[in-house]
C-alpha cells in the first residue's frame, strides 16, 4: 500500500501544473477509481485540506495517505506529491533560472495556462457538486444552502476583503445554521 500511495501521488505531483486546485480533480478521480474513498469522503477530505494552511492537494494527499496506512501512509503520500516539485525546482534553480524567458517556453505556457484555468474551474464544479447528481442523497435545499454560502463567501472576499480563514470560519457557522 505504501508503494502504491507513493507512486500515485508522485504521478499527481508531476502533473500538478497550476498548483493544488488544478490537481484536485485528478486526485479525486484517481483515489475514487481505486476504491480508496468515495465522493462523499473526498468532500470531507478536501474540505479539511482546504481549511488548513498549505497546498490543498498536498493536504489531501496527507489525509488520503493517513486513511489508507496511518502516519506512515500520510508521510509517504505527502513525500510523493512533494518530491516532483522539489526535484524540478532545484534543477531549474541550478541550471535554467531564465528558462521562462525563452520563446519556446513562453509558447508552452501560452497553451498550458488556459488548460490550467479549465482544470481549476472544473475542480470547483467537480469538488463542489461531483457525485451528488446521481446519488439522489443531496436534497435540493442542501444544494441551495451550499450555493448561498458559496455566494456569501465570494462576496465577503471580493467585496469586503475578508481574510480567507475568516471566511471559512464564518461559513462553518453558516453551515451549522443552514444544514
Amino acid at each position: 500500500m505504501l508503494g502504491e500511495l507513493f507512486v500515485l501521488f508522485f504521478k499527481v505531483g508531476c502533473m500538478a501544473f497550476g498548483g493544488g486546485y488544478a490537481a484536485m480533480s485528478l486526485i479525486q478521480r484517481e483515489a475514487t477509481s481505486r476504491g480508496w474513498i468515495d465522493s462523499a469522503q473526498f468532500r470531507e477530505i478536501g474540505s479539511l485540506a482546504g481549511m488548513a494552511p498549505g497546498s490543498i492537494a498536498a493536504n489531501s494527499a496527507t489525509l488520503i495517505g493517513y486513511d489508507r496506512a496511518g502516519t506512515a501512509g500520510a508521510l509517504i503520500a505527502t513525500a510523493g506529491i512533494t518530491l516532483p516539485s522539489l526535484i524540478l525546482v532545484a534543477a531549474l534553480a541550478a541550471f535554467f533560472v531564465r528558462v521562462h524567458d525563452h520563446p519556446s517556453v513562453r509558447a508552452l505556457f501560452y497553451g498550458l495556462r488556459p488548460v490550467v484555468t479549465a482544470l481549476i474551474l472544473y475542480a470547483a464544479f467537480h469538488f463542489g457538486f461531483g457525485g451528488s447528481a446521481g446519488s439522489g442523497s443531496l436534497f435540493a435545499w442542501q444544494t441551495l444552502g451550499m450555493l448561498l454560502i458559496c455566494g456569501g463567501c465570494l462576496l465577503a472576499i471580493v467585496r469586503y476583503k475578508f481574510h480567507p480563514f475568516a471566511v471559512i470560519l464564518l461559513a462553518a457557522v453558516a453551515g451549522i445554521v443552514i444544514f
Binding site: 479539511l48 482546504g50 463542489g128 458559496c150 472576499i157 464564518l170
Partner: peptide, 11 residues
Amino acid sequence: KGVHAAVVALI
C-alpha cells in the same frame, strides 16, 4: 458542509 462551500468559493 459550510466549510466545503467556502472551499468551493476559494477555488
